[in-house]
């Protein structure tokens, strides 16, 4: 499925990998590139071979942000008509787990893309930042919302107002990333985690993501009801029967995603 200009995709052992491929521009995001990322995500989401999706960037930076040249001349009406962020909204609809593997600079739109992932693994030395404020604008693809939900209002305001770089260690402390790994092993460690999740029963993985996402947006009571329905739903799956039988029979389960 390599019909893309700005990204590369591949599938190995149940993991679909999407790599941003403009390393010389530090993977700065063009609109076409975001469209391609979304297309690849949607294709993997429907691909039965793929159980987990990894999003990474080639070269020394995950992504240094949006391509400024592309938007410098924009006006509000053009932006409204272009409706570019509708593409970003589609990322939230992906049902399979998305693991982001980030290194170097994760700035602006690149940071927003990273925050659109479910889990983030960062190479030691990675720096995150929302520098939009220094250009007289602000994040527009979910940055103020996702960061705030992750780290709380106080820290989010500080980082968004100053544009200060957030070192990986601070990002981990504040729950932005899951772990920091040796830069040389970023892909290896990410693929290991992907393989581990890919071994889990896909329907459970899927409905866990669905429920956890509701926890972020729903009041607790509504979220609990939602969780319950998903819990019940899994009892309609073969994997639930396989999982529980295997447990009783003291053997390893073989999950098929059905």
């Amino acid at each position: 499925m390599n019909r893309f200009e700005f990204i590369e995709t591949s599938v190995t052992n149940g993991t679909g990998v999407i790599e941003l491929n403009r390393p010389r521009q530090l993977n700065s995001l063009r609109r076409q590139m975001v469209t391609e990322i979304v297309q690849a995500l949607e294709a993997f989401d429907r691909d039965e071979e793929v159980r987990v999706i990894v999003l990474a960037g080639k070269g020394r930076a995950f992504s240094a942000g949006a391509d400024i040249d592309e938007m410098e001349k924009d006006d509000p009406i053009r932006l409204e008509l272009l409706n570019q962020f509708a593409e970003w909204d589609k990322i939230s609809l992906i049902k399979k787990p998305i693991i982001g593997a980030v290194q170097g600079f994760v700035f602006g739109g690149g940071f927003e893309l990273a925050l659109s992932c479910d889990i983030l693994i960062a190479a030691d030395g990675t720096e995150f930042s929302f520098p939009e404020v220094s250009l007289g604008v602000m994040p527009g693809a979910g940055g103020t919302q996702r960061l705030t939900k992750l780290v709380g209002r106080t820290k989010a305001l500080e980082w968004l107002w100053t544009g200060e770089r957030i070192p990986a260690v601070a990002a981990k402390e504040h729950g932005i990333i899951n772990k920091i790994v040796a830069p040389e092993l970023l892909m290896e460690e990410t693929l290991k985690l992907a393989a581990r999740i890919a071994k889990q029963p896909p329907l459970s993985v899927r409905l866990i993501k669905d429920s956890v996402n509701k926890a972020v947006d729903y009041p607790l009571y509504e979220g609990m009801q939602y969780e319950r329905k998903n819990f019940y739903l899994l009892f309609a799956s073969q994997d639930q029967k396989e999982g529980m039988n295997a447990f009783v029979e003291k053997r390893k389960p073989n999950f098929e995603g059905k």
Binding site: A182, E184, L185, E189
Partner: peptide
């Protein structure tokens, strides 16, 4: 950390 270092 050491395990990753040795692997590297």
């Amino acid at each position: 950390f050491e395990a990753q270092g040795q692997r590297t």
